[in-house]
Design a protein around this nucleic acid. Structure first.
Lengths: 240, 240
DNA sequence: CGTCGGGTTGAGTCCATTCAACTTCGGTGG
DNA sequence: CCACCGAAGTTGAATGGACTCAACCCGACG
């Protein structure tokens, strides 16, 4: 089922009936596939559909005039990459595939139709965009007020928790198919400094990262280094 | 009318009928007032209503264990300060009054009622939270990839545009009732560095800032310094 | 008239950047 | 089969941006 991880995603925030599951499923039409490095949604475009990531990883990135790049979000299966375009109409950033990606399409018309059918599902879709915002805020704190060491640790913690929700971790390891240069654009640092900070984390035996596989060597100490508190991810099942 | 600036706010993104205006108005019940410095919404709380700012300015702020503070948003009249709590349920940050503030309350039950009445207004409320997210992303880019000089210029540009929408600018001036220390928490810098960067902007004759009044001395050059592009604020009237 | 919050300045230090070289490794073509 | 190539990672050295700490100024206010 293509939308399994999406159901895991919202299913970890509220209970949904099987009728609701079907209604959600009905919203999606065709699939789309992209190669690593391809742009999935273009800055400035006006899509008439939104895309749910079902396989692979992608990022939202903004590029400045001077060529500097900042990644503002990392998407994993179960994430809508551009649900906000349903309301914003015009994209204000690119969505780029980190790996080969498979996505499913929800026509904006279909989302509108769903709004007519279910108030509850409307709120759950709305919720996903609001959680995006919560993550953005946490990243702002990390960029503004954490050390690069702590910031990096925080990203690993967040990724691990989010990947666990959609069952994409194995024990304390997960796939992280990103180059250090791209990771630098996530953190707002230079590649050189990313490399050195990474070595500190490795040296302190908090993580290892080889051949795209991250292993958390000591979760408790990683959380402590990051001052990570997952409440901003809203992982409570409650009526929304 | 307490909600005038709110109507200006969404009215600059879509056309709303007078029936819709009334429906929106009906959503708000009591007023609440706060002194400068007071916490309007507490981190960790579970409000059963959301607050629309009608007078004054406030910020969203997160505090780390070590006492470091990061401000993730600045609110002006017409902004919902915590509409996301409608879906998040639990606040993941404080909302703090910069000045004396007046707000009006929308019970979450009333928002639900509105959802039942109007699909369109639902989308417009949703839109406001999604624009919040767009602003967060722009701030992430500014923190991660802009110089402090450019970052600061960007904040002034954004504020000026947003304040103009709700008619709170006079010519090229506006009220900005914030200390340099608080401004440092907006930018993720130290107070000393904020002070020096400010002097650069003044020295280049881009702005002045005295007694809480900011004057933009040269809009074009300020925009250029900031590489400011307002499209992320979604200021197009179009059907949403 | 003294105090206090906010702003300004100087000096020294440190974190992070730039630039450049060098390594490692997987892929590719001679 | 191996030599070469390019992308990604690693390292060193020098520079610079931002921080800390500390002092000092100023105006509002009791």
């Amino acid at each position: 089922m293509p939308t399994t991880s999406f159901l895991l995603n919202i299913g970890s925030r509220d209970t949904i009936t099987s009728d609701e599951q079907n209604a959600l499923l009905a919203m999606f039409s065709h699939q789309k596939s992209f190669e690593a490095g391809e742009v999935i949604v273009f800055d400035g475009s006006r899509p008439h559909f939104s895309l749910l990531l079902v396989e692979g990883m992608s990022v939202r990135s903004k590029v400045l005039a001077g060529g500097e790049r900042q990644i503002t979000a990392v998407h994993i299966p179960g994430d809508f990459v551009d649900l906000h375009s349903f309301l914003l109409k015009r994209m204000d950033h690119d969505v780029v595939a980190l790996t080969a990606c498979r996505l499913v399409m929800a026509e904006h018309a279909a989302i509108r139709a769903l709004m007519r059918v279910s108030e509850h599902l409307t709120r759950l879709l709305w919720l996903t965009t609001v959680i995006d915002g919560a993550v953005h805020r946490e990243w702002l704190v990390a960029m503004g007020r954490r050390s690069s060491y702590s910031h990096m640790a925080h990203v690993f913690c967040e990724l691990f928790v989010r990947l666990t929700i959609v069952k994409m971790t194995e024990g304390l390891t997960f796939n992280f198919p990103i180059s250090q240069a791209q990771f630098a654009d996530v953190l707002g640092l230079s590649t050189v400094h990313v490399n050195r900070t990474l070595q500190e984390l490795r040296g302190d035996d908090l993580i290892s990262w080889e051949r795209q596989v991250v292993r958390i060597k000591n979760w408790d100490r990683l959380v402590k280094a990051a001052q990570f508190d997952a409440t901003y991810l809203s992982l409570q099942k409650e009526p929304r």
